[in-house]
Amino acid sequence: MAEILNANPTIRNASDLPSRRRQGHTQPSSKTPKGLFSGTVPPSAYLSDPFSPSSLSDSELSDDDNAEIEPIDEQEIYDLISPISDPEHPLTLGSLSVVNLPDIFLTPTFPERGSSSPLTTLTVLITPTITHCSLATVIGLGVRVRLEQALPPRFRVDVRIKEGTHSTADQVNRQLGDKERVAAALENGTLMGVLRKMLEGCESRAV
């Protein structure tokens, strides 16, 4: 990397980034007593009886919740892309406010068909840290690659520069929107190297 384009960007505190925990908690708190006592006081002991087949002993994520469907929402998309690291700084796109929760839009691709068509269009607007950031394309590409790897095929992914945040936004958008150019870019070894480095932060430590 030759020279840093924006050496001193604004950053957001990690705990201030939107997260599911904060949102979800507005519902009445969970049914089991939380925190302190769950360690010392195991849930009712007869759950560990192996003879009752349906008793799923480690029921953290099972049981009655099994039926409930959790659809893919904006927050989930945000969680997928916000940990991508910036090619210039060891900081995440989330903390640099390059990706923002309000700039993620999920819409049915064919609204007229209602729920019969599962096809969904996902639009992500990215905000470069400075208006002449030459790395905007790379960032956009990183977001795109991440989403294409992580979302089921029924999603149409559209990554664009947020209006008024970049001097050559149209040009970048054309590049990001052009399937063939994206595919060609992904053949480029150096570029892929940069992308891989950016996406490294997305993987949680192996178990």
Binding site: L61, I69, I72, E76, D79, A150, P152, P153, E203
Partner: peptide, 20 residues
């Protein structure tokens, strides 16, 4: 690929990482 559309969020998350 289909598991990425699993009804459960944490299953999807795991699928994304597994796939990566």
């Amino acid at each position: 690929l289909n598991v990425l559309d699993d009804p459960k969020r944490n299953v999807r998350k795991e699928a994304v990482e597994c796939r990566a």
